[in-house]
Design a protein around this nucleic acid. Sequence first.
DNA 1: AACCCGGGGTA
DNA 2: TACCCAGGGTT
Length: 336
Amino acid sequence: MPPAADLLAWYARQKRELPWRGETDPYRIWLSEVMLQQTTVATVGPRYARFLARFPTVEALAEAEWSAVAEEWAGLGYYARARNLHAAAKAVAGRGGFPRTAAALRELPGIGAYTSAAVAAIAFHEPVLPVDGNVERVMARLAAVETPLPAARPLLGRLAGGFMADPAARAVPGDFAQALFDLGATICTPRNPACALCPWMAHCRARKQGIQAELPVKPARKARPVLHGVHFLLRDASGAIGVRLRPAEGLFGGMWELPGTPWRDTPWSASEAMPHAPAQGVNWREADGLASHALTHRELALRLLVGRVAALPPGLTALGNEAGMPTVMRKLLALE
DNA sequence: AACCCGGGGTA
DNA sequence: TACCCAGGGTT
């Protein structure tokens, strides 16, 4: 196993300057970790500051209305994160503060194996190592693990955890974890790793075999089915948009949407779509184009019908600010 | 173990 | 296009 001290020395010189680096408030560290789940540093940066400006403390977040949290999370994706964040904030505020161990943090909604270890290591200096995609990649290369993911995950986790036996890593678990993140993000990258700059180059078995760019082995991704839908943009006399809340669970759960048809694998004809209109007797005009939106497991192809009424029908909420809607809905609005 | 759940940047 | 990203939850 390569020396932790070599990586920490590299980190001291080459670490990225990030908005959440140097924070000691567990609330701020937790928020950064949740925002960063499957989301790039570049995307999170400005949204992190904006979220904290609106909800500066876990108590402020706990006391907020869901609609305010949803509005603040809009566009970040994986909206279950926001629902779990809100629920966890209420639990933490209710018990008077954050649990201080990974095992106890793990009990909070939206905090899994990775996030519990990350918060425990960074905020509370517990000698645990959070294993994210970066750490998995570094471990797979160091040990030349050719078993495909996700089957290799338990082994990669054990390899990572082994570093906590090194006193240098154990002394600063949060720094060591973030050093691994930075190594994966800037040197040990998915493609074209910059091995010549790596503090662990001499210890890397994949590098010795020349297979570093092939690891870790990941399964081929399946094709995404296309789902079709038709949505209705209805404005009242003041220009406000009629929206409705999606069910709390599932796709875009708890977020605002334009009323419309369900999403299905075949296109909708006009006569099929019309029963799903939010109001009758409206002179609907179809907007040009299509809102195409790619998700992890499907692709959406949505059409837009535009109409105007004096007053929105019951069941629709007037929304003045479209910024609080998921990106796919904003793409639809842009068709008008 | 397999699947669901967003959005954006990059080669 | 395809892949990746400081993953978690459900079945």
